[in-house]
């Protein structure tokens, strides 16, 4: 897939709560094809401490308005600078980057997102709906505060929630959700994005049932286009770049 570099206009910068916000970015050309699981490299202009671009998952694609949506958690200086972008300002993006989640032609799939790892799951759910695949989403977070815009999934899939403190949905980690009882066997594929320990725990569980599990990695990255080899992930076939050969990997291919 061809990669592009463009200045996107900030159409909206919507705080979800004190930690999360959504950027609505208008593309200056007609948006090229974008697959679920792909990401963008965002240039942050602020200070010497935000020298490199930030890799950010594509949260949603609005073809009617020709917009890309990014769901971002304020973590460091880069994401904090992005959170203060004003409507009308421009943001330079290299996009669309990376491979994508594989899209089956039928069956039932489970999408699991932990914290800001939920970001690529909305566009995946939407995409699966167009392919007539039955999708369910399991969203996990520390508390209600980390369960972001769960209503947005409802047109596309059934929504399940866990929180560590039980403030929303079932109490516990995503792997402790009741879906991981008998029901897990009825899924044909599982997609996960979140902290590594969560992805490892989920993949170990579903691998027991021989269900293919795709995980989206968030390795530290410099170029985003396969030039520097900083972001590689060890696999059974050697090191692979998270930015080009990933970020989505079959869990069984990874050495973790």
């Amino acid at each position: 897939m061809a990669k592009f570099i463009h200045d996107f206009k900030v159409v909206e910068n919507l705080p979800v709560n004190k930690d999360y916000f959504v950027l609505y970015l208008e593309c200056p050309i007609q948006l090229p094809p974008i697959l679920p699981g792909q990401f963008v490299q965002v240039q942050v202009h602020s200070s010497p401490t935000t020298y490199l671009r930030r890799p950010i998952s594509i949260y949603d694609v609005d073809r009617d308005k020709n917009q890309l949506l990014l769901l971002i958690k304020k973590v460091g200086n880069g994401t904090k600078a992005l959170s203060s972008l004003k409507v009308g300002e421009y943001l330079n993006l290299v996009y669309p980057l990376g491979n994508s989640f594989s899209i089956p032609h039928s069956g039932r799939v489970l999408l699991i997102g932990g914290g800001v790892g939920i970001a690529p799951m909305l566009y995946l759910a939407k995409y699966l709906k167009t392919k007539n695949v039955e999708a369910h989403v399991l969203i996990g977070g520390k508390s209600t505060h980390d369960i972001i815009e769960c209503d947005k999934y409802k047109p596309y899939c059934e929504v399940y929630i866990t929180t560590d403190d039980g403030s929303l949905g079932e109490k516990g980690l995503v792997t402790q959700h009741s879906l991981f009882g008998e029901q897990i066997k009825f899924y044909d594929r599982v997609y996960v994005c979140g902290p590594n320990p969560m992805m490892i725990a989920v993949s170990k569980l579903v691998e027991k049932y021989n269900i293919p599990c795709e995980v989206s990695l968030e390795n530290m990255m410099a170029c985003g286009i396969g030039a520097c080899l900083c972001c590689v992930a060890p696999t059974h076939e050697g090191n692979k770049t998270t930015c080009v050969e990933g970020p989505v990997f079959n869990s069984k291919d990874l050495k973790w």
Binding site: T50, Y51, L229, C230, V232, P234, N239
Partner: peptide, 21 residues
Amino acid sequence: GNAMPRMAETPSGMLNSVGLQ
């Protein structure tokens, strides 16, 4: 090449230890 992590952002630059992969 070397083990991960292989890079760190530093003020106005970065460190890498890709190790000639």
